[in-house]
């Protein structure tokens, strides 16, 4: 048995490799800027939020990857994308279709990369306007921390703020 290659932080210049258009590196196609095809069926939604560290500071150099089921609850190869925190405001935005329920409640898988994060952080986003009571993963999360995984709806936009450390710390998974 060979051991897994160990992780290292993505560092502050992750955009050069994973979102070259954000770093102003010319000559590369965009990859992951559109999470679903323009003709994907389902409810069009927007999700936005910020990432804060243990000192309450905005993490403006982070990138998030998203992996989700399509509107029927199946994981199609294309429903994957990336969003970078804005360098000035720290806000990230995802435009997608709302995933359908599979064996659990509708959710989006997130993978967070940034300077100071030595191994990527895996979490999930659930929707406040869905029935999450029986979700097999959410029920394993201690009840007082479940709210950290639930996006709140305002109109067609959901808000999902991530806290890396300390009060209100988002639940991260090892799966």
């Amino acid at each position: 048995m060979t051991k897994e290659t160990p992780s290292q932080t993505a560092g502050p210049f992750i955009h050069i490799g994973l979102a070259p258009e954000v770093a102003d590196v010319d000559g590369m196609r965009t990859l992951g800027t559109r999470i679903v095809p323009t003709d994907a069926s389902g409810e069009r939604i927007c999700i936005e939020g910020t990432i804060r560290d243990g000192a309450g500071e905005l993490v403006k150099d982070a990138m998030i990857e998203f992996w989700q089921a399509d509107a029927t609850g199946h994981h199609a190869p294309g429903h994957w994308g990336r969003a970078s925190a804005d360098f000035d405001t720290g806000l990230w935005t995802l435009k997608t279709v709302k995933p359908g329920a599979g064996r659990g409640a509708p959710h989006i898988t997130l993978y967070i990369l940034a300077r100071g994060i030595n191994i990527g952080l895996h979490t999930r986003l659930y929707f406040a306007d869905e029935d999450n009571a029986a979700d097999p993963v959410l029920v394993q999360v201690p009840e007082p921390r479940r709210d950290t995984l639930i996006a709140q709806r305002k109109g067609t936009t959901y808000r999902f703020d991530i806290v890396l450390q300390g009060d209100g710390e988002t639940v991260f998974f090892d799966a």
Binding site: T9, L164, F173
Partner: peptide
């Protein structure tokens, strides 16, 4: 890493 590492270990699922 001291302000960006989660204080809780990741939840095994």
């Amino acid at each position: 890493s001291t302000t960006r590492a989660p204080s809780q270990p990741p939840l095994r699922i």
